[in-house]
């Protein structure tokens, strides 16, 4: 019995050093050298201030901005320190109620828009931090955003279309729009008098 104890303890200690210390440290050092921006969270800065991460969604409730997906993180939506989902089952009445309430507030913010609401705009995401919406969901919001900002709808629509990310290689993933980047681009239309400025990625 005790004969196998020594190799068990010695190997566990060695493997802990190898995979628990050397491996993460080596990976961290190589990552910092090769991909410093990504390793630190793909942060976006505007005028020298970090305004968010390209990969992490933010809550928007101002009609002048595009809104992202509903988020089920607690205690507040888009809590990037505690990711999580609703985990509501498809037959749960609470799901239908939540979706119905979201649809209602979207329509109240844009009463003349009678188009069906794209499903991703009323269902909460897996992480609670989804940075994207579908192009359909962004286009659905164009009328509201254009009115609130006093911009022509066509200008806002073409901004959305210019920001659509296609499937990778035409196959992987789905078409999408990054909400934070879209909203920053919207802001930059105003600040630069109609022409667009490029965001600086930290």
């Amino acid at each position: 019995m005790f004969k196998e104890l020594r190799p068990a303890i010695v190997l566990l200690a060695c493997f802990t050093l190898l995979t628990g210390v050397a491996y993460p440290l080596l990976t961290t050092a190589s990552a910092r050298l090769a991909f410093p921006r990504q390793a630190a969270g793909s942060l976006i800065a505007r005028d020298g201030v970090v305004v968010g991460s390209e990969l992490i969604g933010q809550p928007f409730d101002d009609p002048r901005y595009f809104w992202g997906r509903p988020s089920s993180t607690g205690p507040a939506a888009y809590n990037a320190s505690a990711s999580g989902a609703s985990n509501l089952g498809p037959s749960n009445a609470a799901l239908a109620q939540a979706v119905s309430a979201r649809a209602r507030s979207l329509r109240e913010a844009d009463p003349d828009n009678h188009a069906p609401i794209p499903i991703d705009l009323v269902t909460s995401s897996g992480s609670g931090l989804d940075p994207h919406i579908s192009p359909a969901a962004a286009l659905w919001q164009v009328s509201r955003v254009a009115r609130a900002r006093g911009l022509p709808e066509d200008q806002v629509r073409s901004l959305v279309l210019s920001r659509v990310q296609p499937r990778t290689l035409g196959i992987l993933g789905e078409v999408r729009v990054n909400v934070l980047e879209l909203n920053l681009a919207l802001d930059s239309i105003l600040s630069s008098g109609g022409s667009m400025v490029k965001l600086d990625h930290e």
């Binding site: 609703s86 794209p118 269902t123 579908s134 789905e174």
Partner: peptide, 16 residues
């Protein structure tokens, strides 16, 4: 062409 659609509760848009 503009959305994956389907049952998106608990799913991420980039994966659909």
């Amino acid at each position: 062409a503009l959305q994956s659609g389907g049952n998106l509760e608990g799913k991420e848009v980039r994966f659909g």
